[in-house]
Nucleic acid binder design. Sequence first.
DNA 1: TATGAATGAGCTTTCATTCAT
DNA 2: TATGAATGAAAGCTCATTCAT
Lengths: 204, 204, 204, 204
Amino acid sequence: MEIAEASSTQKKIIDAAIKVFSEKGFEGATTSEIAQEAGVAEGTIFRHFDTKKGILQGILISAVTSFQRPQIMVSLARMIEKGEDHSCVSMVKEQLDVIEQQLPLLKLLFYEAQFHTEVQEIILEKIARPILDLLSQSIGKRKNMREFRCFDSNLMAITLISSLWGYVIWKQIASEEETIDEEEALIQVLHIWLKGVQANLHDC
Amino acid sequence: MEIAEASSTQKKIIDAAIKVFSEKGFEGATTSEIAQEAGVAEGTIFRHFDTKKGILQGILISAVTSFQRPQIMVSLARMIEKGEDHSCVSMVKEQLDVIEQQLPLLKLLFYEAQFHTEVQEIILEKIARPILDLLSQSIGKRKNMREFRCFDSNLMAITLISSLWGYVIWKQIASEEETIDEEEALIQVLHIWLKGVQANLHDC
Amino acid sequence: MEIAEASSTQKKIIDAAIKVFSEKGFEGATTSEIAQEAGVAEGTIFRHFDTKKGILQGILISAVTSFQRPQIMVSLARMIEKGEDHSCVSMVKEQLDVIEQQLPLLKLLFYEAQFHTEVQEIILEKIARPILDLLSQSIGKRKNMREFRCFDSNLMAITLISSLWGYVIWKQIASEEETIDEEEALIQVLHIWLKGVQANLHDC
Amino acid sequence: MEIAEASSTQKKIIDAAIKVFSEKGFEGATTSEIAQEAGVAEGTIFRHFDTKKGILQGILISAVTSFQRPQIMVSLARMIEKGEDHSCVSMVKEQLDVIEQQLPLLKLLFYEAQFHTEVQEIILEKIARPILDLLSQSIGKRKNMREFRCFDSNLMAITLISSLWGYVIWKQIASEEETIDEEEALIQVLHIWLKGVQANLHDC
DNA sequence: TATGAATGAGCTTTCATTCAT
DNA sequence: TATGAATGAAAGCTCATTCAT
């Protein structure tokens, strides 16, 4: 399994880079630190990636695979199509925990996108757009059934995603504060959104 | 007026640093670039700030003044207390534009907060917390009047703020796309939230 | 004398670089070695020259000044115009010693010219061409007086220069061998050339 | 025929190294580039040569074979012994073209000789000295016949070689200029030298 | 106080060389 | 024997910081 082994070095570097970039930011991280974390020589990094920026793109490519159609979004879409569903909420909760673990990576990618056009384009086309489309479609179906208000579907999707995002970020920041039960909090966030987008009888 | 002059130099540096940090990020920016942008010698920077990080804190301090109780939040609080108010919406819209102009700075501060504890603390205590308290209080009043659902006030506030934040970020990213009228979009976002938090008669 | 001092750092670097490049070649030399030789910090080099190659160009520029119309060539031109002149020979000898001291630098510049177009162009236009023109003109005058053969003037000049160059190089390489007296050798080289280019009565 | 194959690999490496060294200089060339040019793995180079410098010596050894008694020098020696001979001139011309094709290699070897004693010694003993001896002997014979001036034989030989060398280099550098016919130029160079060394009746 | 040349530690990157396969 | 991934020392270069003026 030579190929597997070859790519295993690459994987080690990617994993180390995710860790170090997440902790220090892209510019704040050093290749020597990444090498050490990966347990390889610094020169080895540059046999696998042309430049330091190349590592970032490598991370992105590997991230695209796992974020392109994240399970949480599929669950959310299902929840939207079927109306609120408590079994669904617990699934969403579970998957939100996964997202939280990757929060530093996500923040890194979204932030660095400002400075690296290639990164921005890939994130937009391969991550943000597919997710948004997925949710927009589900939202559109409910709109057609007159169950959701006839607002802009994208906007409704964004409202949902950013509410969840805001909740996750807040949990991180205010970690030591007295907060309500996590599952309860998630339910409240989803309830607010669901009720917010529900159509009145005489709407539209 | 030497003091005035000194502080004017300081202001020039702060302004230049905001520009350069916003464009390149904190680590990506160089003090020499900031000096050039400010029209001062590189050494001069270090008469006003001990270290590069000191400039970031300087920015933060000057930002705290303008963000501590930003007009937009006051308007939002008023809107919450009085119920939806169209005159209020147009004010919110106006102030959201101001926010948008400072978006790079805000993103910078929020992002760098991860890596610099002092920055994080100041943002939390001087910006995030006051804003959240302001909104939470207004929300609390409506809750007491049984007009808002008896959800966690902080959570409701976060849902509102992050919906608006998400909307602003999306506008930036998807700038060239066909989007609905900005004012209409803002109204939709606020409507979703307002309806989402409104109490049913038999709630709680 | 601040200006003098500022440029003195630059001069120190140039002088050190001439020494190190001459000893190790351009690629074989390191900037750290140059810095050490110059007695400055390595970083200082890059305040004065953008890149390592920039140092080479800096050397060239300073060399152009001293080689553009080297005294030896003026003496040679005079010798050519007046016919052989023993006082002239001793002057040429003297100046040839100067050239010899700068031999490593000259070899460096001529050799590196192969790899750096900018260097090549400057050497050609600012050093080689003026020298060749100077000699060609003097040769031309004698040709017009029917005292020199009607060969190509440039070619005659090249024959002279390269004979001298060959002699100097040989002296270096075969330094420890028994060689004839230097002044005598020089006279012989010049005699060969002078007799070689002299016109017969019935020439042309 | 493993030995034959091995040596063929070695030859491929030598040929590639000549090309790459000629184009980039010794220090400027990389072993990876040589490997690629040779169509072998980088590691393979080090099965045939201990170090990078070893390749240079390998080149030198293979060059010694072809330069030790180059045909052009034999032709020149014959020309000297017999006096000017037009059939000889055209042969010299032909062989000078061969030299020109190997000019980069020759320049490389002569230049690098400065930095590598072993290279210098081999060039001196195996190339320069034999050539010089060959010409000196022929010159000596004419001197004995009172047909050449009683100058130092080595010096006369050097004058001849460097005139030709200077001519070849000049052709390269000033390639795009209007120059006289190559054969005519060569004849002029040789005429200048021949007439320059010819004895007057009452010489010595 | 403001300057900007100098600093030197530390960065990203290169490359001759090694070695398990 | 040939391979090419891995190595790590050292390269060129950057930049926050200092300090004499």
